[in-house]
Design a protein around this nucleic acid. Structure first.
Lengths: 189, 189
DNA sequence: GTCTATAATACGATAGAC
DNA sequence: GTCTATCGTATTATAGAC
């Protein structure tokens, strides 16, 4: 099945989908950019939609692993919060295609009923963690949804603004400002 | 030019674009849903893209007016912040199509170089206001971008989650939780 | 201003040779 | 596994009657 070819198709498509959108990218575009013919692409993926699904799956898995190891780095919640904010911004700077695909591509338009990556496993992972911390009294009492959104909303909005061209600086340079807002928003004081 | 017909095309298209996406909506779809023929639609709009532009323009104007009057309601910043959060959530509940179009439709995919509505005039309006408040010492010193994102990120993320089906309750019911996080994040204490 | 009919094109997907 | 060639279809947009 030529694993490398399949992988090249995936990474080529990720770039094209995020840069020009799923619907503005034809299978011909992907094939040409990957140095293949349309026939070859269709040999690896029965449908265009399946290429998008493959990207979604690998992105989701990557983010779950990344979040798990980020949380494991510290024992104090305060430090974990800083580290999560930092990681999200760093990934947006370093793996732009991957993060933009996860957050910006409208999966619902591609396959009806499809949930965005950020609301699936990676989001649930964080929600569970903060529910425990809330029970322990380490953050204020509030709706569990609100706690996770308090943590992720600012990093995500900054990413979206960066991708939309409203920010030119590296996102990582906003780490402290964002962390301060986030932590003050949830700390139990 | 039959103003009502033009208006019916716009509101019909807004619903279709937000529900099934710009690229999954054909001009035939719009015409049929509006009770017209494709020829009639093309009489009012030379290109499909222009329909999207017309929606964008009216949405932007609406939001600017809405934000201006919301800020004018109170003199205390604290109250203004609550009111803005409340207004954003209320609009998302009451004018879903309009808000979802403003925030969820990927304008960049429709016309290259197009900025999202939320980053244009409405966003700039809030940024100017908070820059003044920061100079007056009413909120903590931080990057002006960060201050506005601190205010808008949580309401916007909640909207996106609602539209993606992750939330079923009315958004307005989260007003207090969101306001607490936002205000604690920016207050000068 | 609205209709029907159709032109022109691009796309997803397939067939069959190599 | 990869290629070229092509089918069938859907889409944007136009032409011309009413």
């Amino acid at each position: 099945m030529s694993f490398e070819t399949r992988q090249r198709i995936i990474s080529t498509a990720t770039g094209l989908f995020t840069r020009q959108g799923y619907f503005n990218t034809s299978v011909r575009d992907i094939a040409k950019a990957a140095g293949l013919s349309t026939g070859a692409v269709y040999h690896h993926f029965p449908r265009k939609k399946e290429i998008a699904s493959a990207i979604t799956d690998s992105t989701r898995d990557f983010l779950v692993t990344e979040f798990e190891s980020t949380i494991a780095k510290h024992s104090e919640l305060k430090d974990q919060v800083f580290e999560i904010v930092h990681t999200m911004l760093r990934l947006a700077d370093e793996k732009r295609d991957l993060m933009e695909y996860a957050l910006h591509v409208k999966h619902r338009e591609i396959s009806p009923g499809g949930k965005p990556i950020c609301l699936a496993e990676p989001f649930e992972l964080l929600k569970k963690h903060f529910r425990r911390q809330m029970a322990l009294g380490n953050i204020r009492k509030m709706d569990p949804h609100a706690a996770v959104v308090c943590l992720t909303a600012m990093p995500i909005r900054f990413m979206q603004m960066k991708w939309d061209g409203a920010i030119s600086k590296k996102l990582i340079s906003y780490t402290n400002d964002i962390y301060e807002c986030v932590w003050r928003g949830m700390e139990n004081s």
